[in-house]
Structure formats: structure tokens, C-alpha cells
Design a protein around this nucleic acid. Sequence first.
DNA 1: GTTGGCTGCGGTAACGTTCCCATGGCATCG
DNA 2: CGATGCCATGGGAACGTTACCGCAGCCAAC
Lengths: 352, 352
Amino acid sequence: MSSSRNRRPTIIDVAERAGVSKSTAARALAGSSNITEETRERVLKAATTVGYERNHLAVGMRSGRSGLLGLVIPDITNPFWADVARGAQDKAAESGGSLLVFSSDWDVVKEAAHLGALRRARVDGAIINPVADSFDDLDRFGLPFVLIGSSAERFAETSSVGSDIAQAVRLGMDHLVSKGHYAPSLILGPKNRLARARFLRSVHEHCVARDIDPAILAVEDGEYTVEGGRIAMRRLLERAHVGHVCVFAANDMMAMGAMMAVREAGLRCPEDVSIIGFDGIPSGEFTWPGLTTIAKPGRGLGERAVEGLFNEIEHRPEHRRIYLPCRLIERGSLADLSTATPQRAVAGAGRV
Amino acid sequence: MSSSRNRRPTIIDVAERAGVSKSTAARALAGSSNITEETRERVLKAATTVGYERNHLAVGMRSGRSGLLGLVIPDITNPFWADVARGAQDKAAESGGSLLVFSSDWDVVKEAAHLGALRRARVDGAIINPVADSFDDLDRFGLPFVLIGSSAERFAETSSVGSDIAQAVRLGMDHLVSKGHYAPSLILGPKNRLARARFLRSVHEHCVARDIDPAILAVEDGEYTVEGGRIAMRRLLERAHVGHVCVFAANDMMAMGAMMAVREAGLRCPEDVSIIGFDGIPSGEFTWPGLTTIAKPGRGLGERAVEGLFNEIEHRPEHRRIYLPCRLIERGSLADLSTATPQRAVAGAGRV
DNA sequence: GTTGGCTGCGGTAACGTTCCCATGGCATCG
DNA sequence: CGATGCCATGGGAACGTTACCGCAGCCAAC
């Protein structure tokens, strides 16, 4: 009678079993002070025998902290964002938290709806890749949050975590130069995207530092898709050019599209055209040749974002932009023009 | 004084504003009966003006339903599981629920820890791809759940959702036959995996139905990885064989590894070796040639799993195994031997 | 010996919601 | 006209937890 068969044991059941009050049981379970070692052990033992597990809903109710974190990203199906989610998930789990994942599909309405769901679920805070341009939805959110990804640039006053585009471009350009390429053609994203300007600016800065005139670089725009890259590459090949062509694509999907366009034009990669991408998506490993690219630290971003979020929640505001370094992944899509017999060397280096 | 500036408005604030008791406010907000239309409108208006949002923690506390659903999968970074997660997420959001995502990394200890976290978070139920072989962890879970994926086969008594392997194999074999291939070599997973036996059994059944002796099929085992597929393919090519080789791989990663091995052996796909995979991972689109494969309905599995879970929660037990159909994705890795000039036809069909 | 502080513990309120029950007003019917 | 029933509303308890306060017992110091 005292405790039903399938009701889940509460702290009161533990207290009764241990012969103490629920206050004492709570103290023992919380590991706090002012309690005899003997009582604590008795309570702990009672807890395990009745199979007690703390009810986070009740804790959240009482303490105002639910232990829930929100993550709003464009699409969990996108490998980059899955990587971010994984990092966030692991970091949250480290401190006993759980992650609520939502996909916005780059849709402002869905994003707003998801933010509402997070508020109602009483998450302690959220990590958001904002699709909305305006700040309205965000400060309507009313909870601690950190922004993630390059679109965070639009919001000056909030802490954010993103990858270090400038460092990434430098890494790519240095690699190109080390392989004997000096003035790569660029395949960039649409003109209205902020990331495009940032990428281009970084390339220019690097050129200036190396005494290369940025004006000589061929530039094509396209959608951030395989098809966009393919079209851009086609246009690039139609331009007059002499000898080996080198392409720096602002996105791996575009780079893979470019690779297709090269093949379709009857040319070979990397013998005739060298390609380097940017993102580090897994598919790049399985193209032929494998795609040399700069990988964004997706998982690291997720981890760092959760750390930043905890700081916001604890009112230890960093209010800083964090930029995490990217890393080069060498596969076979870049010819080595710095040696005497580039073609043969490259052909062998395609796979390891 | 009556309401602090940054405290979030409760139903009591709404009630005060509307000049009614909290019971009446609750009734109005719940849209329940026994309330004047006029009062309901007054309450609703008060709710929007004070910016009230229902506290799901408190609701969960009182009603025993948190609106939270758990998802425990091996790795959100794996595109198949990301697809599943997306389906589950969308379906959960449809009914106002949220999804807690956890990755177990095929680790029994992590799995158990995640299940514990879900219990403490008071999720209403969970969708689990079980890594543990034993039923112990699962019925220790003590909450409604549905299993997902092929490993669910090990547990007879629980409802589960998986892809229809038999139908998938039939689809693949029919396609092979329609392209003039009759007795494909098989690249299967490790012997201890249940999925291997299921796949092989389906192939055998199909062979019997078509009067093909299953014994003539060459079979190689390997890990479910690119490397595993590459090694298996190498062994397959070492065997004596005449003419065109056709390979049915039990997994896309292995299929891609096989494709590499073909290239490394100086042969061409699909001219010399035809390959068909199984899974439908996105990377298969970017190999050369594109990988023809049978796609598992990842998103559909996630959606169906949530539906099944709701049934479990509402005590409308289906206690059924659901098998969702797979679909064929034709790309270029399979030669068409049914026409007079197979090579040229295939080469053109590689990309659309 | 009285006082003061400290320590271990119990009682109780509060978090926000919903559900059950009580109450009072009004209409209907005998 | 009084009894009955219904309906809109209000009051209060409960979900499980933690924090605050109070109380008893003990030791030390004056």
C-alpha cells in the first residue's frame, strides 16, 4: 500500500527506507555538508535498493535549471552540422546535460517555432545558427544563447563561435604556393552571402602579403551546391587560360561539382586542373581523385559553443567571438607543380 | 512589486491580469469546456499581453508527461543515423514534442549511461538502436521504447522498426537480372553480425525462386568499412573468374572500397566490374562512377519509430515489427549487359 | 552552572501546473 | 414557490525536489 508497484521511487521512498526525513535524504543525495557519514551511507544504500533516480523535472522546477540545452541548426542531415551536434552533445553530456536538437531548414518561420519550443521546454540556453537576418527573433528568445557558424557575423553584440576563415584561407593559399600554384581561380558563393565577402577578403589580404595582384585572379560565383560548382567551373574553363588551372572553391560541394565539370570537359584532375575545397565533408574522401580541402572543426565548434553557453548561463559573460582553426586535408586533387615530374608524383599520391 | 521584471510570467500573472482565478485561466488556456466564451477570450488576450508561455517542466511534473522523447543511436555523424534522427525530430515536433539525441558509439557502457540520463530527464519514451546483446539493460530501462534498425531482430518481444532487407535484396537482384547479371558475387559483413545472415538468407531465397544454385555465388566477408570492402574485393578478384564480374555489397562503404580495389587492380567500373551497394549514403553520389545502390528509408524509419513510440506510450501496443521498403538508386556503377553495346550505353548513363 | 555556538536533523514552503471538489447563481420543473 | 440540477468559477491539493528556518543536543568557555 505504502508504495505502488509501478510508481517510480521518489526521495520520500528513500527517506522512509533509510528512516530519516526527506530533508536529510536530500542532503545525503546532494552530497552536501552537515550530515553524519553514517546517515549518508544509509541513505545512499536505501537509494540504490529502491532504485531511486533523481527527477530532473522536479529539480528544474525547483531550481530554475532544467539541465536541457537547445541546438538549432539548419539540418542535422548535413554532415557538417551533424559534426557540430555531436560535439555539443558530448560536451553537454559531460556535465550531465541533454541536448534538444532542432533543424530549421533555413526557414525563418521554423526557426522561430523551434525557439518557442525551446522556451517552453525551459532549456537553460541554446546554441543557434541564425537564419533570420534581424535581431528581433533572437532577443525575443529571452534566454542565454551563443551563435554558431559564419552567419553569426551579422550580430555584433553576442558571443559566437565560428571557424577561422582567414586562417583557413591562409592555410590553403600556403599549400597552393608550396605546390607551385600562385594565382588560383576562385569559385565563390552567391554575392549576397556574407561568407563570400569574408572569404574573398582573406584571399586578397593573403595576396597582398605575397605581393600578388589580387586583380589577376579569375572569380566565378555560384550556389553552394554541386550544380553551382559545376556551372562555375564550366565558365572558368571557357575563359582563355594557359597551362595548368588551379581552383580554390569556397565549399566542398562546389569543389566536387567543379571536379565533375573538369571530367565532362575531357580534362583530368589533377593533371590538367588542380582543385582545393573548403569544409571537409566526408564525401570528399570518396571522389576520384580524393578532394584536397580545408576542414572546418565542426565537432570542436559544437564543444566550444557549449562551453561558451555555460559561461553565458552562469553569467560569466565572455561576449567574445571565438574563431577555431581549420586544418588541411591532403588528398589527390592538387597537382604538385613544384617538382620536375609533377604528373607521375601526383598520380601516385592520390591515395595512401 | 507584484511581478518582477525578468521573471517569466506564470499562469497566475495571466489570471490576475484577466481578473479570474488560476483555475479559470488554466481552463481557458487548455481550451477545455465549462467556460464562457467571453472569459476565455479575456484570458487568452491577457496571456498574449503578458507574454505567457506554458512551462513544460511544471506540466510534466503534474501530468507525468514531459513531452520529451529520447533517441539513442550509434553516431549522429553517420549519415544514415542523421537521417533517422531528422525523421524522428520532425515527427516529434509535429505533436509539440522535443527530441533528446544521444550517440552511443557502439559502446554498451555509454548506451547504459545515456538510458540513465533519459530516465532522469523523465522522457516519455525512447527510440533505441540497441548495441547491448542482452535484454537486461533494456528492461531495466522501464519506460516505453521501440527499437530501430536491424539489430532489433535479437529482441523478439518488443516493437521495432527496420528496413525490409528481403525486399531490398529482391529489388537489387531483380535490377541485376534486368541488366543481364545473374549470379553476383557477394561482399558481406562480419560473420557474427546478424544482418549478414539476414542478407545472405534473402539472397538465397531469391536465387531459389529464380532457379539459380546459391552455391555458385562467390562470397567474401569483411568489416563494414571502406577498407573491409577493398580487401574483400581484392580477394574476389584473385579468384578465377571469366568475363564481367558483378558484385553485390551489403553496405555502401564496402561498395566504395570495392570500387577502389577495382581501380587499384587496373580494372574499370562498370566496364569490367559492376558494383551495387546497400544503404544509400550521400557519398555514393560523388564516387566515379556514381554508386548504384539500394537506399534504406532512414527518415521514414525515424518517423515511423516515433509513431510506434506514441502508440507504446498511449498503451495502444502494436507489438509489431515494422519493415519499411527500400528503394533503388541507379547511378553508374552497374554495366548494362542486356544490350548489344553495353559499354557505351553504360558510360553515357553514369550521370544524368 | 549558565551561556553561546555549532552540528545534525526535521518541518515546511515554494517552484507552475492541472485536477478534483465546493460554491453560488440561475433556470427549469413539479 | 420551493426543490432540483446544471454550469461557470474559485479554492486547494498534489506532482518531487530543494532551501530556509527552527530545534534539540552537545561541547566549550566564561
